[in-house]
Amino acid sequence: AQQCNGIYIWKIENFSGLQKAQEEERPVVMHSPGFYTGKPGYKLCLRLHIQLPSAQRCANYISLFVHTMQGEYDSHLPWPFQGTIRLSILDQSEGPERHNHEEVMEAKPELLAFQRPTIHRNPKGFGYVTFMSLQHLKQRTFIKDDTLLVRCEVLTRLDLNS
C-alpha cells in the first residue's frame, strides 16, 4: 500500500459493524494507512467519518478528507502541495456497468492543509463533509463482502512537470 503510482485503494472491512456503531450514535472516524503519491512523492492519508444520525446538516453522510503526513521525501519536494485529487467510492458490481461515486478536487495551496506537515499528520485536511449519503450507498453494490473500497488518485504538479 505504500508505493502506488498515485493510486491508492483503501479497503474498509466490517462495514456493517461501523454502520451499527453509527446507528447507535457512536462516532465513526477512521484513518487510512499513509501512502505515497510516487517515488519520490508526498505522503498522504485519508480520513473517513460516518456522520451520526443526530449530526446537524450532514446526518448520515460519509465525510471524506485527505491529509498530508510527514514523509521521507519531504525535504526534496516543492511545498505547498499542488495538484489534483480524485476521490472515489467504488461500485463493486459485477459486469461493465459500474458507477463509482467520484469527486475531483484541486488543491488550494493557500490552505494549511497543503503545507509541509510539522507533525506526523497534518491536523488540517481537505475534502467533503457530505461526500456520499448512506442512503445512496444502498443503491448500488458499494458494499461487497462487508467491505467498502475508497480510491484516491493523485496527480501532483510534480507529475505534470516530469
Binding site: F65, E103, L111, P123, K124
Partner: peptide
C-alpha cells in the same frame, strides 16, 4: 449541485 471541498481540522 456539486459538493464543494473544504478544509477541515481533526485532532485525535
Amino acid at each position: 449541485f456539486p459538493p464543494v471541498p473544504t478544509e477541515d481540522e481533526y485532532m485525535d
